[in-house]
Simulated scan of single mutants.
Amino acid sequence: MTADERQVLRSASLLDAFDLDLATQAAGLAHQAAARRLVERPLVTEDPHAIWPHHLHGAIRTALRGADDHTEDHWTPADGPALTADTPLPRLPSTSVVPAPSAREPG
C-alpha cells in the first residue's frame, strides 16, 4: 500500500462506515485516488444502497487503531485517546435525506 492508502485506511478505521469523500477528507487528502484504490481491496465491504456504503470489519478497525507498528507514518499516543483499541468511538449521527424544496407555484 502507498502512504496515502495507509492514511486512508487508518482514517477509515475510526469510522463505522464511509464513502469516498468522507474517507478522503478524514485522511486529509485532496484527491480520492487513494480512497478509490482502498475500497477495491477485499478488506473493504460495500453496501451500495447505504448512505455510507463502505465498511471495514470491526476486527480490522480494532487492529489498526491498536497496531504497534514501526512505519514512518504510524500513530503515536500523542495523537489522542480515540486511537487506542479499547476506547469506544462515537457513532456518526444518522443522516436523513431531505428532498430539495420544489419550486413555488405561482399563486
Rank of each mutant, 00 (worst) to 15 (best):
P88L: 07
Q32K: 05
P81I: 10
P90Y: 06
L92C: 06
H31I: 08
D16V: 00
Q32D: 08
S11G: 15
H70M: 10
T87A: 06
A82H: 13
Q25A: 02
L29D: 04
Q32R: 11
R41C: 08
P53M: 06
A78V: 01
H54I: 00
A78Y: 02
I51W: 05
L15P: 03
D47T: 05
V8R: 02
T84S: 13
T45S: 15
H74E: 09
P88G: 07
H55R: 15
A35C: 04
D68V: 13
D21L: 01
D73I: 06
D16R: 11
T2F: 05
D21E: 03
I60C: 07
D21T: 09
A12W: 06
H54N: 09
R6T: 05
Q7C: 08
R65W: 03
Q7F: 03
V97I: 15
R61T: 04
I60H: 11
E46I: 01
A85D: 09
T87E: 11
D21M: 00
F18N: 00
R36N: 10
T84Q: 14
D68K: 12
W75D: 10
L15Y: 01
R61N: 10
L14Q: 14
R10N: 07
V98C: 07
S96Y: 11
Q25R: 12
D73W: 01
R104A: 14
L14G: 13
P42G: 07
R61A: 13
T84I: 02
L22I: 00
L22N: 00
V39I: 14
T62C: 11
L83A: 03
P42W: 08
R65M: 05
A27R: 01
P93H: 07
T71D: 14
W52T: 03
A33P: 00
W75M: 09
R6E: 15
P106Y: 08
S96Q: 12
P88R: 01
A26G: 00
V39Y: 02
T76K: 13
G107H: 14
R104I: 09
A30T: 12
R41S: 14
G107A: 15
D68M: 12
E40G: 13
P106R: 15
E72M: 09
A100K: 13
R65C: 06
P42M: 04
A23P: 05
D4T: 13
D79I: 06
D69P: 04
T76S: 10
D69T: 13
A63K: 00
T24N: 02
P48F: 03
H57V: 03
V97D: 11
P77Y: 04
A26R: 09
S102I: 05
W52P: 00
